[in-house]
Amino acid sequence: MNTVAAADLEELLQLVPVQRAGVALLLAAVGLPVIGVVIVGLDIMPVRFAMMHVALLGIAVGLLTGLDPMLCALVTCALAGAGVAPLARSPDGLSGAMGLLMSLAIAAALLVLAVSGVNAQGAFALLWGSILSVGGADVWLLGGLAVVVPAVFWWRRRDVALLLYDRELALSSGVPVDRLTLLLLVLVAVAVAGAIRLTGALLVDALTLLPALAARRLGRSLTSITVWAIGIGVAVNLSGFLVALRFDLPPGPVLVLTAGAVTLTAHLVPERRDSSCRAYASESPPSSH
């Protein structure tokens, strides 16, 4: 294993691509772990894989039309998130929808690539991600998510807490469930697509799901879970990035292993027997109407 000297590490940190990657990871640590809280709360773990395939379809369309592939991936994922929202009305609608979406998206992507004659290897390469290739547009996207996602949670924290706890309870309490579910699924889709550039589609859990899983173990309400998720995300992203630079390792896998280690450590903390059931519901008492 190659080790970068302290002086060389300091020089690395002066490079614009490295600084941009660090800023992107810091912004991602604010918005994306909160998206992970939604994924865990709605029990839609397959959404990461579904959106990876949808993003591939968007990339294929971008390569075919000459538009920016990642912009097309973001738009396609946002439309897919909005499209599956109505299926959330049934108990297992979302989990089934993700499997259907995954199959249709990959089939459509391969068809577009075949018809267009575009090099499929080039399209798939965009899904592997590279933190040091992050551009200004990616930073702006992550910055927007860092503002919008926590703002939505704080603005509608009671409604979100009830929805993540029990859909029927949220409906009976006057929560606009359909509109809120639509908003959350669009945010999830865009966030997952935005994270692809940082770690790649296969390693996106390091930025979203793993901090949320650790936070759910430590938090006692939606607010505390969200704060824990952001704190863990910041610690994991910055420490993992510095370790990768220090030992000349690929940042993506290091981030995943760092996040995984924190998650495993969090699960060593004794848990109250009823905490996982009541964490979301404890945000505020339901309405009486």
Rank of each mutant, 00 (worst) to 15 (best):
V175S: 01
V177E: 09
D178H: 14
R179K: 10
R179M: 09
L180I: 11
L180H: 09
L180R: 04
L180P: 07
T181M: 10
L182F: 13
L184V: 07
L185Y: 03
L185I: 11
L185W: 03
V186M: 05
V186Q: 10
L187I: 09
A189F: 13
V190N: 02
V190W: 06
A191K: 02
A193P: 13
A193Q: 14
G194M: 04
G194N: 02
A195Q: 12
A195I: 07
A195C: 15
A195G: 15
I196Q: 03
I196Y: 01
I196L: 06
R197V: 08
R197P: 01
L198V: 15
L198F: 10
L198D: 11
T199W: 00
A201Y: 03
L202M: 10
L202G: 04
L202E: 07
L203R: 01
V204P: 01
V204C: 04
A206M: 02
A206R: 08
A206H: 12
L207M: 11
T208M: 15
T208H: 08
L210D: 02
L210E: 05
P211Y: 15
A212W: 12
A212I: 11
L213T: 02
L213V: 12
A214L: 15
A215I: 12
A215K: 02
R217G: 08
R217L: 00
R217W: 04
L218E: 04
R220G: 14
R220E: 13
R220D: 13
R220A: 13
S221T: 15
L222E: 01
L222K: 10
S224W: 00
S224P: 05
S224K: 00
T226E: 06
T226M: 14
T226I: 12
W228L: 10
W228D: 11
W228F: 15
I230P: 03
I230E: 00
G231K: 12
G231N: 09
I232S: 05
G233H: 07
G233F: 14
V234T: 13
V236W: 08
N237Y: 00
N237L: 06
S239R: 09
S239D: 06
G240W: 02
F241T: 06
F241C: 05
F241R: 11
F241N: 07
L242V: 15
L242Y: 11
V243A: 12
V243H: 08
V243N: 05
V243G: 10
A244D: 12
L245Q: 04
L245P: 08
R246E: 08
